[in-house]
């Protein structure tokens, strides 16, 4: 009689069959159109920047896993997402050595220090970008005009700056719609903004592609639609109110929505599951706070763009939101504590 072996394990014995890896992979898919558009509008420069960001993130993740003697986690796509997001938030002619440094910082400091995937308190890509912004404020605000004729024939000298040296910008640089508005009072046409016919960070220009990517993820259930919805609505309502009070001094709500990194941030960065609250009401509050901060920083602050800071602050507040906003547990009244 043969020996028979039964497996025993705890219930439930069924799973939905969805894995973290799948979710992450679909996020990558949703971002691909933006990547292609970035390359289309900014040429080889953008391709190099995004590619470098991804390589540096994935490489850093792999090396750190090796050092801490854990199995490598690059297979879960999360480092790739961080890399793409970082690349998309940088100016298209950002020097590659800085991009690489940003990727290393994003993964090492934004993720590994906190205990890796699942524990990162901030969105890693934004940590990387925030540090780059503080370290190299000039390079990260040197924009490149979209659709330049030589974008597929030459690579900007700035991109290829030798490591640790200052980039030299050649060719035309452009101002982003937000800085143009903030410092010169010039507004940009909403259709241009929607289709991405403006200069800016590599991936933030085309609002439509970002929305499409977001809709894809929402459709598949891999993204909490409440977050972008809350952020965008708050920005729209808040800035709409200001516009209504004084249309000369304040920009139109449509301009606020479509310009800068708001769309990219609201759809792909604020929605980082780990660093956002967990309940439906919680994420709405989180979104409203981020939206309000964006408007406050953009309009009254010293900087033209505040999405990055607003999301990082949102990340900082989200543990508190989770503490305060919880679902009412079945069979308990709302007032009852513990």
């Amino acid at each position: 009689m043969s020996v028979q072996t039964l497996n025993i394990s705890t219930s439930p014995h069924l799973t939905k069959g969805l894995s973290t890896e799948t979710i992450m992979f679909h996020v990558v898919l949703a971002m691909l159109p933006m990547v292609f558009f970035a390359i289309y509008s900014f040429g080889f420069n953008a391709a190099l920047v995004i590619f470098t960001a991804v390589v540096s993130c994935v490489l850093t993740e792999h090396v750190l896993c090796r050092i801490s003697k854990k199995p490598t986690t690059i297979g879960d796509w999360s480092a790739t997402i961080t890399g793409i997001l970082l690349g998309l938030t940088l100016p298209p002619i950002f020097p590659l050595w800085m991009t690489f440094l940003g990727g290393v910082i994003a993964i090492a400091m934004g993720k590994f220090l906190f205990g890796g995937l699942g524990y990162n308190a901030f969105n890693p890509a934004l940590v990387g970008r925030a540090i780059l912004q503080a370290a190299f404020p000039v390079a990260i605000t040197t924009w490149y005009g979209a659709f330049q004729l030589d974008r597929f024939s030459t690579i900007n000298a700035s991109v290829l700056a030798f490591p640790f040296t200052e980039p030299i910008v050649d060719g035309t640089t452009g101002a982003t719609p937000l800085s143009a508005f903030k410092f010169d009072g010039v507004t940009t046409d909403a259709t241009d903004l929607a289709f991405g016919l403006v200069s800016g960070s590599a991936g933030e220009t085309s609002a439509i592609l970002i929305i499409l990517g977001g809709l894809y993820l929402i459709r598949r259930g891999f993204m909490n639609w409440r977050i972008p919805m809350a952020i965008l609505l708050t920005v729209f309502v808040f800035s709409g109110l200001l516009f209504w009070i004084d249309p000369v001094k304040y920009p139109s709500p449509l301009f606020m929505l479509l310009s800068g990194g708001l769309m990219l941030g609201a759809v792909f960065m604020a929605t980082d599951m780990v660093a956002s609250p967990i309940t439906s009401l919680g994420v709405v509050i989180y979104g409203i706070i981020i939206g309000a901060l964006v408007v406050v920083i953009r309009i009254w602050g010293g900087l033209p763009e505040g999405v990055m800071y607003a999301i990082l602050l949102g990340n900082a507040i989200s543990p508190h939101i989770d503490r305060l906003i919880r679902y009412r547990v079945y069979g308990t009244s709302k007032l009852q504590k513990s």
Partner: peptide, 21 residues
């Protein structure tokens, strides 16, 4: 062992699954 236990690798957890096998 009569059965192969799969799950959290602690005695306390395993003992709750059919005694641990």
């Amino acid at each position: 062992n009569k059965a192969k236990y799969k799950g959290m690798e602690t005695c306390q957890a395993a003992s709750l699954v059919s005694g641990g096998g």
